[in-house]
Simulated assay, not measured.
Amino acid sequence: MPVYWGRFPETSARQLADNVSFRDSVRQAADEGLPIYAECGGLIFLGRSIILEGKEYPLAGVFPVTFSMSTKPQGHGYSAFIVDQENPFYPLGTQIKGHEFRYSVVESWDGGPEDLALQMERGTGFQGKRDGLLKKNVLALYTHVLAPGSPEWAAGLLRAARER
């Protein structure tokens, strides 16, 4: 079975759920400290599950989050955040710009503000004007970072990989 990475999880939910070895390998890599940086669809994939048309599909299970989809945008437009918690990719105080465009909804989350590394200055984020789920060397956020305007992104990714 092919690996479905870099797509919208909501369009490949059945294939992702069926690919147990892939889901397990991603969860195991995260548990073992492999640096993982995920945006939007990657964030969803790292969740526990997604509910589509009344059916729940298991995902990687790195984060205790269940998602669903709305018919209306839940985050749409330019965004900006400031890093206010230690994480493997961005130094504290870093300000980053990007954008959000999503229809996904956080149905349930067994976490709290201490599990989110980023304070939204503009945009919706994950919950409560915060973004950036954090666990070990994994950072997953709804914000699509404007990489050319954020050299900290590439430097952080390389640093995390070197340290690993």
Rank of each mutant, 00 (worst) to 15 (best):
P91F: 11
E100D: 09
V145A: 09
A38W: 02
G42R: 04
N19C: 04
G42M: 04
A154E: 14
G77Y: 11
A29W: 07
F89K: 03
G149W: 13
S68M: 09
L92A: 09
V145W: 03
G41N: 05
V138H: 01
E53W: 11
G6V: 07
K136Q: 14
R164E: 15
S104E: 10
G125P: 01
T94Q: 07
K136W: 10
I82E: 12
G54I: 07
P113C: 02
P2I: 11
V83T: 08
T143W: 02
E53G: 05
V26L: 09
S49M: 07
I96S: 00
L146V: 12
S104P: 03
Q28K: 15
G61Y: 05
A38D: 02
D18W: 00
S25A: 13
G132L: 01
R162A: 15
G132N: 02
V3Y: 12
D24G: 04
E53M: 09
Y78R: 14
Q28H: 13
L134M: 07
I36Q: 04
V62C: 00
G112C: 08
G128V: 08
I50K: 00
A147P: 03
I82H: 05
P88L: 04
L139T: 04
F126N: 01
F67K: 02
D84Y: 05
G6D: 08
I51A: 07
G111Y: 03
P2Q: 12
L52N: 07
A147T: 13
A30V: 06
S70Y: 08
P113E: 03
P91C: 14
W153T: 14
Q119V: 13
R48W: 09
Y103P: 01
N137T: 13
F89D: 06
F126L: 06
R23I: 08
E86G: 06
P91E: 15
E56P: 03
R130T: 04
K136R: 15
S25T: 13
S150C: 14
E163Y: 11
K97T: 15
Q28G: 06
M69Q: 15
R7V: 13
D131S: 00
P151D: 14
E114F: 11
A29K: 02
D110W: 10
S12R: 12
N137P: 05
S150G: 06
K135P: 03
C40N: 07
Y78D: 12
Y103N: 04
R130Q: 03
F101P: 03
G77H: 10
Y57L: 02
P151N: 06
D115A: 07
W5R: 14
G112M: 05
Y103E: 07
L133G: 01
A38H: 00
V65M: 05
L43T: 03
L52I: 11
L146G: 09
P9C: 04
P91G: 13
D24W: 10
Q15K: 10
A17H: 04
Q95A: 13
A160T: 12
S12P: 02
L141H: 05
D24A: 12
L116R: 02
G41S: 08
G112F: 07
L157H: 04
P88M: 06
G33S: 09
Y57E: 07
L34E: 10
A117H: 01
G149P: 03
G47H: 05
V145T: 11
V105R: 07
A117T: 04
S12C: 12
S108P: 06
E163L: 13
